[in-house]
């Protein structure tokens, strides 16, 4: 077996495969289908300071090779997570990363500070890129100055690995990545969903209650890959790549483009055990290419 260990800031992952926030619940939902201890990490559902009911139904529309969602960060709030969910997660041997979101700067700071006190949570993924909330969310991730400010303030209260999840719904993702790197982010993860829309031509109505939603799945992979490649060239901190990864081959492409780790998202809905197949497939690839470590292929794209 090749060495699949990878590092994001101070966080060492046993392998570079993380399940993406919002697609894997808290991991427990998947216990009948796979041993979650084998995963490099699990990004848990977006967590906010206060309980959020999310958006009205319908929240999902299937699209060619993908889906739109408009869940809107439904969750029971950070205190519920700390008191009820976290104690159950501590028994598992995988890196639980909490995806932190908010409507205001203060929300982000207070939520991150609370998570900082949890000894078994080694990292947060700061979600400044959710397209499905009216206030905050993506607003922080599409403006360079706001992105910098939220990272700067969260950095003051959060002392473990800080990953910042970037939005693809921007003109220049590099400038945002550089801004959050400058303010002390340990890593960036990208891409969050692309803002999209679906219409029922017969009823002449939108298919989502919020009209627009976030597009994910294999259809976004080429965009994600391009952005990971661009950002990986621009920043020195690790890049966690995601966007339409459905198998090991997809994952390898992201490593070649410069990702240090990858997240599997929407594919979990179709095959709940797909992440383990991705891990196995990465190992097979590395052995076939006579690589001792995953590090050998990170950013190894041959462009000449």
């Amino acid at each position: 077996m090749a060495n699949l260990t990878t590092k994001i800031g101070n966080l060492t992952l046993k392998n570079p495969v993380i399940t993406a926030s919002g697609t894997f619940g808290y991991g427990e939902e998947y216990l009948d289908f796979l041993d979650i201890n084998q995963l490099g990490g699990i990004c848990v559902k977006g967590t906010t300071l206060h309980r959020r009911e999310g958006n009205p139904y319908p929240r999902m529309a299937e699209t060619p090779s993908g889906m739109l969602n408009a869940v809107g960060l439904q969750n029971k709030g950070v205190d519920y997570f700390i008191n009820t969910i976290y104690p159950r997660l501590k028994v598992f041997e995988t890196a639980f990363i909490v995806n932190v979101s908010g409507s205001t700067l203060e929300d982000y700071i207070e939520t991150a500070e609370k998570i900082n006190s949890l000894s078994s949570i080694p990292a947060i993924e700061l979600n400044i890129s959710c397209p499905n909330v009216k206030q905050g969310g993506m607003a922080f991730g599409v403006d360079k100055d706001m992105a910098a400010e939220v990272v700067k303030e969260v950095r003051k209260v959060y002392h473990k690995t800080l990953i910042v999840k970037l939005s693809p719904n921007v003109t220049d993702i590099i400038s945002i990545a550089e801004a959050v790197e400058h303010e002390g982010a340990d890593a960036v993860s990208l891409i969050n969903t692309l803002l999209g829309m679906a219409i029922d031509a017969e009823t002449q109505k939108p298919l989502l209650s919020t009209i627009t939603g976030g597009l994910s799945g294999p259809c976004v992979k080429p965009i994600a890959l391009r952005m990971v490649w661009q950002v990986a060239h621009a920043v020195k901190i690790p890049v966690v790549g995601m966007g339409g990864i459905s198998n090991a081959r997809d994952a390898i492409e992201f490593f070649l483009a410069g990702a240090t780790a990858i997240e599997v998202g929407t594919a979990n809905f179709i095959d709940p055990a797909v992440s383990l197949q991705v891990i196995q497939g990465i190992d097979d690839y590395l052995q076939r290419h006579h690589c001792e470590s995953i590090i050998d292929i990170i950013g190894a794209l041959k462009t000449a």
Binding site: T23, F24, G25, G54, Y57, M60, V71, N268, F269
Partner: peptide
């Protein structure tokens, strides 16, 4: 529904 197992919160 998307996931069918309570993870995605789409079918509420």
């Amino acid at each position: 529904m998307a996931c069918g197992i309570g993870a995605c919160l789409c079918c509420v």
